[in-house]
């Protein structure tokens, strides 16, 4: 790799100094995509700013009323194994277990994965279903960005170049919330994504409410499909499910890739969603 300086600030105040010197600065979380970009000369930083020693960046705090706070430097393996995650956010837990490889999960951070903004980012699908919000910091102050507004498509985000994700917040959900993650890839480690979907609903008075459907690999960014979600409210019959699946098809724009044509990605997504919705409904009937 081309030479750069490595800085590991211990406070945000210390980080400001490096962000405002007019140098090319790239922020380092786990490095699993940053180092590839540097190797390929897509990025030529003067300084790499490692955020892993910043205070609060490794926090994992759950409160039954306020929800879950995840520091930006928490790695994906924690999402796959953490007790709070497994108990209160099983859809996030299930998705994390399928992500990449153990080697990558042990390094990749939540903040870095969200900021990388891949159109096929699997982590984003459950984050969208759980209404996750990014808390950010820059030399100009702090702000919040819902994950649903973070992605502008094709690896672009609403983040400024000197803006860091400090933590993610997920609101609390009722115990009887059911979620399913389904995906089809060429490689088992998630590379060469054909399509994926996270689906979630809350069980209330013998009905299923607050449906959320987040799709990936079928548009320029992972996204919710509210047009389909609305059609599933209550106790959806087969006809409602068929209409919801149609609504999904009308609201996606998959691209042809060498390993999957767009019509194949559409068909795969349809099958995955059909399976997921039926899984959630049968969960209701079993309970």
């Amino acid at each position: 790799m081309k030479a750069f300086d490595y800085i590991r600030p211990k406070s945000l105040e210390e980080a400001v100094g490096h962000l405002t010197q007019g140098k090319r600065v790239n922020i380092l979380g786990g490095g699993v995509t940053l180092f590839l970009q540097i190797q390929n000369n897509e990025l030529t930083p003067d300084v790499i700013l490692d955020v892993k020693a910043l205070p609060g960046f490794h926090d994992i705090r759950y409160h039954h009323h306020h929800g879950l706070k995840l520091g930006a430097a928490v790695n994906l393996q924690h999402l796959a194994t953490g007790l709070e995650i497994r108990r209160h956010y099983p859809l996030l837990n299930q998705t994390a277990q399928e992500l990449a490889s153990p080697q990558i999960r042990n390094r990749a951070t939540i903040g870095g994965t969200l900021a990388w903004a891949s159109p096929v980012s699997e982590l984003v699908a459950p984050m969208l279903c759980y209404d996750a919000v990014c808390h950010t910091w820059s030399p100009r102050g702090t702000r919040t960005i819902p994950v649903s507004e973070l992605y502008l498509g094709d690896f672009k985000t609403a983040l400024e170049p000197d803006e860091l994700i400090t933590h993610i917040h997920l609101p609390s959900f009722p115990a009887r919330t059911y979620g399913v993650y389904q995906r089809q890839t060429i490689r088992h480690d998630g590379r060469r994504m054909i399509a994926g979907a996270a689906t979630l609903a809350i069980h209330k008075h013998h009905t299923l409410t607050n449906w959320r459907i987040a799709v990936l690999g079928v548009d320029d960014r992972p996204k919710r499909v509210p047009e389909a979600e609305a059609l599933l409210e209550g106790a959806p019959a087969e006809a409602d499910i068929a209409r919801a699946l149609e609504a999904v098809q009308e609201n996606i724009h998959p691209q042809d890739v060498v390993y999957a044509r767009s019509d194949y990605r559409r068909a795969v997504l349809n099958a995955l969603l059909q399976r997921s919705i039926h899984d959630i409904i049968s969960n209701l009937q079993d309970s």
Binding site: Q77, Q103, N106
Partner: peptide
Amino acid sequence: GEVVNSCMVLAVE
């Protein structure tokens, strides 16, 4: 104790 790809970690990290 955790498995990582050593090509994806800086020595200084």
